[in-house]
């Protein structure tokens, strides 16, 4: 904003000439005193200006242009699901980075006083019991992941039922399917990290799934799970996939997906 001082209204003179009760006078004088020192209103006026700037450049909305049912806004939440999954991804990334400070992907015997607890399990337990806000942090990471997956599924349904995948958006639809699959892989690799019973047996399912692929099954199982039964190599690989490989890949693919949407525009909502 400009450095020039705005021409201030002479509040004191105004207060003198105005016919006010003593309480009103004191009240207003106090607020004027506060306003002169804190200048909060100036900051809010900056926001006000910003609002008009942004508002101003808004082209006519689709509903205005085609004079559609003005109840259309009820459907906006469905149109925001794609952006929402991106935001949930960001929340999961931040909370996940914080969790990564305290987690260690090792299947060696852990320090927690539980039969069969590994280091991975102990660090998760420590995050949940010892770390300040750790319980909430794991909860947040978990829920952001769950909600992101749900949002991605619902986003796909919205795109399907409103025909937003039609030409010229076929490529983005396929990229979306890739993203959906990667999201599920993200979820699966994260599911294995605490190395509790659920994780171990979900890993077992994964090994069996890859073994059942014709011709290359054993090779895939070796590559992804590091063996034919879940163990330290599995945990290590899941960890690297979850915190190193997938974040780069998924972020890139999300960027391409969003870039295409940006260039092509939102398929006209009805």
């Amino acid at each position: 904003m400009s450095v020039e001082r705005k021409d201030d209204h002479d509040h004191d003179a105004w207060l003198e000439e105005k016919d006010l009760t003593p309480i009103e006078h004191t009240f207003l004088a106090t607020l004027v005193w506060l306003d002169k020192r804190l200048r909060l209103v100036d900051y809010l006026e900056l926001l006000e200006t910003l609002y008009y700037r942004v508002n101003l450049q808004m082209p006519k909305s689709h509903t205005e242009q085609y004079n559609l049912d003005n109840k259309f806004w009820y459907w906006y939440p469905l149109y925001s699901l794609g952006f929402f999954s991106t935001l949930a991804y960001v929340v999961a990334a931040i909370s996940g980075a914080l969790l990564g400070f305290y987690y260690s992907p090792s299947a060696a015997a852990g320090s927690v006083d539980i039969e069969g607890a590994t280091v991975a399990y102990s660090t998760v337990a420590a995050i949940m019991t010892d770390l300040n806000f750790g319980f909430f942090l794991r909860s947040l990471h978990r829920w952001a992941a769950q909600v992101m997956t749900a949002a991605v599924f619902l986003h796909m349904l919205r795109v399907y039922f409103t025909g937003a995948y039609k030409e010229p958006r076929e490529v983005n639809w396929i990229i979306g399917i890739v993203l959906l699959s990667l999201t599920m892989v993200f979820g699966y690799t994260g599911y294995l990290l605490p190395w509790d019973q659920l994780a171990f047996w979900a890993g077992q399912i994964g090994v069996e799934m890859s073994l059942s692929i014709p011709l290359i099954g054993e090779w895939v199982a070796q590559l992804v799970f590091g063996g034919f039964s879940p163990g330290q190599p599995t945990l290590q690989r899941m960890y690297i996939l979850h915190v190193f490989l997938l974040p780069f890949v998924v972020t890139t693919v999300i960027a391409i997906h969003l870039g295409l949407v940006w260039m092509q525009g939102i398929a006209e909502p009805h």
Partner: peptide, 20 residues
């Protein structure tokens, strides 16, 4: 919606089962 994630995260924390 992000507020809802925080709401869910604080009301329904996840379970940690028995070790593998």
């Amino acid at each position: 919606f992000v507020g809802m994630i925080f709401f869910l995260a604080s009301t329904l924390p996840p379970h940690l089962g028995a070790p593998a």
